[in-house]
């Protein structure tokens, strides 16, 4: 050690003439008061800084943050609930609409069916009438045709007789034809 001008009386009993410590410097009782005094000063300073400024500030910030977070969480919960409600409403509307559509289409189908039935009935009636009329006409025509056949046969027979050079007696021809038609 370079320092050799140490007043050993003043420096205390813990320093040798080379400026080094004698024994453990920590156990030198000449320095105890100084260490403890400045330790108390430092501790009190830290304690005051913490209790006056730092801790209220930090705990306020933390409380505010947890408040904000729980508020945000509550808001998110609320929004989620609203979304669920909206979805339920949408679902319900969809179901209603589907039922309504079902109903409307059912009604339409029923109406169409009724119309169709009526139309079919009318058509059936018409067809029936037409068929009956046709039947009658056919019967008439058939009757007419049967009558006509005899007349035609008579005419043809008399013509044939005439053409063969005979003299056609109307009554004889008629009788012959009738006999023929009847007897076949």
């Amino acid at each position: 050690m370079a320092i050799d001008t140490i007043d050993l009386e003043l420096a205390g009993s813990c320093v040798d003439d080379g400026g080094s410590a004698i024994g453990m410097p920590q156990l030198c009782d000449a320095w105890f008061a100084n260490q403890i005094f400045w330790l108390i000063v430092a501790l009190v300073a830290i304690f005051l800084i913490l209790t006056r400024i730092a801790l209220p500030r930090v705990s306020a910030v933390l409380a505010e943050r947890s408040g904000t977070i729980s508020n945000d969480l509550a808001a998110a919960e609320d929004l989620k609930r609203q979304a669920t409600e909206a979805e339920a409403a949408y679902e319900k509307a969809l179901t209603d609409a589907r039922a309504e559509a079902q109903r409307i289409s059912g009604e339409a189908r029923a109406a169409i069916k009724a119309d169709l039935d009526a139309a079919i009935a009318v058509a059936d009636e018409k067809i029936g009438a037409k068929a009956a009329e046709s039947e009658k006409q056919i019967t008439e025509i058939r009757a007419g045709a049967a009558a006509s056949v005899a007349q035609v046969a008579r005419d043809v027979a008399s013509e044939i007789v005439t053409a063969l050079g005979g003299k056609a007696d109307a009554a004889t021809v008629n009788a012959a034809v009738d006999a023929r038609v009847k007897g076949n």
Partner: peptide, 18 residues
């Protein structure tokens, strides 16, 4: 152990430590 010695911050080295 010299590093654990108490020395006055201002003034001469070897000054008394009150």
């Amino acid at each position: 152990m010299d590093q654990f010695m108490i020395k006055p911050l201002f003034g001469e080295y070897g000054d008394p430590v009150y």
